[in-house]
């Protein structure tokens, strides 16, 4: 695990990607910090961070795209998977390297609230809580990027898919408002979600029975709920969509609230996607 962690971290700085990532991230955050906090004299760093969550969405794919896709393409995964190291350790080593790279930027950000104290009283607790939240949000996005990188051999495809998925999660809560909310439409959307799930199951496991099972059960459940207790569908779509809205959870941190549910949410996203990545790599050996 240590070997892979060191190798990955080192490769970010020998290949410049790491430097470029840190530079762009910090430059953009610094500009916002300068404009929002210093010029407009807002004593709360979270305002600046809140305004630039999209930067994370734009930049994370740059560092996650190659992390596994490149190993697949160069066949260097053969070295890693035939070495006496478990897949879990390989993936965790890689994930920790990514988190460390992102964490370096967060450490630099920790200096910014202190700069504000030079000009007056800054809201330090709120600022640091939002930096912590920003770190967790990045960690969650990195785990998604890691998983997507394991699905392909091409860095470009990994980057594009990660980008689309991240934009989607970013816009999720606003998209949810646009969808119809009457019971019948919700029922149809639920059926569609069940079918999409079935397709995903098919792509992952290639088992006809399981695919059919998921599709039939999902559709049947949606229709039964519609017929028996349609009130369950009240606001369901908005709720479901907001589960996927990774950015939305950041807002509680930026208010200075150490919200346990958001913390658990981010940690679960990280865990789930790192776990998926491990499964994906293990599964590749079985196909």
């Amino acid at each position: 695990m240590g070997a892979i962690y060191k190798k990955e971290l080192k490769s970010y700085f020998t290949s410049m990607i790491g430097c470029v990532f840190l530079a762009i991230l910090l430059i953009i955050i610094s500009i916002y910090f300068f404009v929002v906090n210093l010029l407009n004299m807002v004593a709360d760093f979270s305002t600046a961070l809140n305004a630039i969550t999209f930067v994370v969405v734009l930049l994370i794919p740059i560092i996650t795209m190659r992390i596994i896709a490149e190993e697949n393409r160069q066949k260097t995964d053969q070295l890693l998977l035939t070495a006496p190291v478990s897949v879990t350790k390989i993936v965790i080593g890689k994930y920790l390297a990514l988190i460390t790279l992102y964490g370096i930027a967060m450490l630099v950000l920790c200096v910014y609230p202190l700069i504000m104290t030079m000009y007056g009283e800054a809201q330090l607790a709120q600022s640091y809580s939002s930096i912590f939240g920003f770190f967790l949000m990045g960690g969650a996005y990195i785990s998604i990027g890691l998983f997507i990188s394991s699905l392909t051999e091409s860095q470009v495809i990994a980057a594009v898919i990660s980008f689309v998925v991240m934009i989607f999660t970013y816009l999720m809560s606003s998209l949810a408002q646009l969808l119809p909310s009457d019971h019948f439409s919700v029922c149809i959307i639920m059926c569609m979600i069940a079918l999409i799930l079935a397709v995903i199951v098919h792509m992952m496991l290639r088992s006809a029975y399981l695919t059919a099972g998921v599709a039939v059960l999902g559709v049947a459940a949606s229709i039964i709920v519609y017929l028996v207790k349609p009130s369950l569908y009240d606001g369901l779509i908005v709720n479901i969509m907001s589960w996927f809205s990774v950015v939305a959870r950041f807002s509680s941190f930026s208010l200075g609230i150490m919200d346990i549910s958001s913390l658990v949410y981010y940690l679960s996203v990280m865990f789930v996607f790192v776990f998926f990545t491990i499964l994906k790599i293990k599964k590749k050996r079985w196909s």
Binding site: K6, K7, S11, Q74, K75, T76, L79, A83, P84
Partner: peptide, 19 residues
């Protein structure tokens, strides 16, 4: 399975640590 952007010795050191 070579990491093209690594130096030979660096690569072998990595393999040694991995093993």
């Amino acid at each position: 399975p070579l990491y093209l952007e690594m130096m030979v010795k660096e690569y072998l050191m990595f393999v040694a640590e991995l093993k």
